[in-house]
Amino acid sequence: MTPLLSVSNIQKTYGHRIGCTGVNFDLYPGEVMGIVGESGSGKSTLLNCLAGHLEPDQGEVLFDTRAEGLRDTMTMSEPERRMLARTDWAFVHQNARDGLRMGVSAGGNVGERLMAVGARHYGNIREQAIDWLGRVEITEDRVDDRPSDFSGGMQQRLQIARNLVTGPRLVFMDEPTGGLDVSVQARLLDLLRGLVREMGLSAIIVTHDLAVVRLLADRLMVMKSGHLVESGLTDQVLDDPQHTYTQLLVSSVLQV
């Protein structure tokens, strides 16, 4: 079976400081992988390297493209990489403002990716936008409202709709539930889980919230100071952690 994403030996340094180093893993179609670690552990750096937002100092990120099979996204041309980023890839930012056009209506935000790949029929674009807003539980009468009129949870759901409308195969998520209150988080997680299952998505989710990964992720990687310290099945890593740091992390979770 061909992995969807094959990462080898990724390293990114900021001067003398290590962003992340020696990261290797394969992600298979339909798998959801969580990356956990404290602030500054390098998980966001790693995610940005994988998604092509940052250029790593070394390493390979092979993606199974539809046309040509495994290609190194680091060495492919920028137009190709940007094309991937708006078709087969999606990136959900922690702060919805980074992932939305705040001055454009909800429908326009969702429609942008469709228009970016050549959709030129207003009626169809709008119909698809409304369908996707529905899937993320935003009612049709909000389609012409701007995201600035939305609550934080709605903005995040809108961002997800905007990302998934082109049927991507790989979704990068950076703290998708960060900054949301708990009830909104649960709703968003349930929604994400449903979409991941329904669309057969693969996803890489960076978070510091262990409850989030337990619910969403099949596999887990634990990062500490730029290094990958432990990885495995999510429930195994959380229930039977092997590394000092993971044990500390798991035992530090507040019980409700």
Partner: peptide
């Protein structure tokens, strides 16, 4: 039981 299920290593 948990080892058989892969929950414990």
């Amino acid at each position: 039981m948990r080892m058989i299920y892969g929950n414990y290593l």
